[in-house]
Amino acid sequence: MNKIKSSEITPEHIYLSRRDFLKSMGIVSASAAILAACGIAPTESAQASVAPASDTQLTVPPSADTDELGGALNSFEDITHYNNYYEFTTDKERVADLAEGYPTSPWEVRVGGLVNQAKTYSIDDLRKFEIEERIYRLRCVEAWSMVIPWMGFPLSKLLAEVQPKAEAKYVRFETIYDPEGMPGFKKNPWYQWPYVEGLRVDEAMNDLAILSTGLYGKDLLPQSGAPVRLVVPWKYGFKSIKSIVKIDLVAEMPTSLWMAAATNEYGFYANVNPAVDHPRWSQGSERRIGEFSRRETLMFNGYEAEVAHLYTGMDLTANF
């Protein structure tokens, strides 16, 4: 199998300018005219074609059927109906139902802390970043995995805008805290809500780390962490925090919700590592959703070339 990065398959500028491309070909206006001729009001479809990627109905098919290692993409149905989102429920197969219709607009992400240019981003502000497709493996700490065609932009681009100060060593992320709107808060009161996650600044600047706003060419659904979530594919899934409302640059290592819940089981780094087991179960293999047999888990979830340098000289057993 040739190693082809998904970003190499679809040239970014073509992918991103697909609507301009259609416009320039006159397809939008032509189709609007056809629709008008058929007595169908053209407004909706024509607007959808020129609007920013906000219409959930608009589907841009993924540029490839597999990840760069040949693993088939999981279906949209599986990706959106098997979710860990404890703010709704601890039952992975019920999150989709409970999250249906959860309001994610308007939405604000406050970015601040040790930065020179603190800024509050609306969803429209976030959409101004160039959206790229990233086909990533997601490896859950529970030893199952998926391949997901995310849409998003590098976290580094957002950080560049707010200009972290020199003393900023970590990035701290926070999920929305909404006990009225999400039933899981009251059912699971023993967790230290809100959900918090963190990265070292150099991890956050790595090109693999993205803020995602969509998958399969559609806007994220609430169960997937709409409207904006982190995706750090070389770490266990729980690091990829959902429905972010706050990002702070900080000097001290943030304590994540899972670190607080079980210090001996979930560390700050949570890098996918088949050689370092969870204290209660093996991380040596995983079940790929949609496949019959187990796969061996790869070091850094198969992204060793891209991220191993971040951890040179570190004891990965101690820094699990």
């Binding site: 179960w281 019959f292 187990r294």
Partner: peptide, 20 residues
């Protein structure tokens, strides 16, 4: 038989030392 599909090396490495 299904989950580990009689992969005894995986079973031995990953499981027999696990308390659950």
């Amino acid at each position: 038989g299904v989950d580990y599909f009689f992969n005894f090396s995986l079973i031995q490495d990953g499981l027999l030392e696990k308390r659950y």
